[in-house]
Every structure is written in structure tokens, then in C-alpha cells.
């Protein structure tokens, strides 16, 4: 388990960024594309956007795992119809992933 020094400011920043991402990608983009092109395309577009927006920071090697994570969160959005579960799952994965890495 990682040491927890500095986790509060980092955790708060990570939670903020993850929540903004969910509000925009799942809340707006997926919702918009679902309205325009249907549920499946909405899911795929939001997963693609989510993976693409992480490329500048993590490189192309991170694209497969981001695509998979994007698909999971998009599925959660389609299933629940809400953004909050996606934001909670996203923040939990970020912080949990760091703590147990």
C-alpha cells in the first residue's frame, strides 16, 4: 500500500478533474450523441472521446485501457441514466488505483 502523504490535495484535485470529465463526457457528449444517433453510438462516441482526451497526458499506449474504462463508465451512464454513479466510480478507480499500485 502506498504512503498517504499528500493524498488530500491530490485526491481533491483528482476528484474534481474526474467529476468534470464525467459531467462533460458522460453528461453532455454521451447524452447529445445518444439523442442524435442512438444509445450504442452515444456509448461508443463517449468512450472514444474519453480515450482520446487522455492521449496528450499518457500517450497512445494508454489508449486501450482508457477505451475500456470509457466503455465501462459509458455503460454505467446508459444503465443508470445518471452521471453521479459514473463520477463516483471514476473517482474511486483513480484513488483506489493509486493506493493499491
Amino acid at each position: 500500500m502506498r504512503h498517504v502523504q499528500g493524498i488530500l490535495p491530490w485526491g481533491a484535485g483528482t476528484a474534481l478533474v474526474a467529476t468534470i470529465e464525467e459531467a462533460v463526457v458522460r453528461g453532455q457528449i454521451q447524452s447529445m450523441w445518444t439523442g442524435i444517433a442512438g444509445v450504442t453510438r452515444g456509448l461508443l462516441v463517449s468512450a472514444g472521446v474519453f480515450a482520446a482526451m487522455h492521449v496528450p497526458a499518457y500517450g497512445l499506449s494508454a489508449m486501450p485501457v482508457d477505451l475500456a474504462a470509457g466503455l465501462t463508465l459509458a455503460g454505467l451512464r446508459a444503465l443508470t441514466g445518471r452521471v453521479a454513479p459514473c463520477a463516483i466510480a471514476h473517482v474511486g478507480a483513480d484513488i483506489g488505483g493509486w493506493l493499491w499500485s
Binding site: V17, A62, V65, G75, D94
Partner: peptide, 24 residues
């Protein structure tokens, strides 16, 4: 999508454990 995404994430975790984690 949820099922496929979780399966893909788990598979990538075991097949390519050196892939970077996501820290936003």
C-alpha cells in the same frame, strides 16, 4: 458496455500489466 468494459480492463490488466494507470 459495462460488462465488455470491465472484461477488457481486467484482461488488459493481466495481459499488459505495464500499461500506465489513469490519474487524470
Amino acid at each position: 458496455a459495462l460488462f465488455a468494459g470491465i472484461c477488457a480492463t481486467a484482461t488488459l490488466h493481466f495481459v499488459a500489466p505495464s500499461l500506465p494507470d489513469i490519474y487524470d
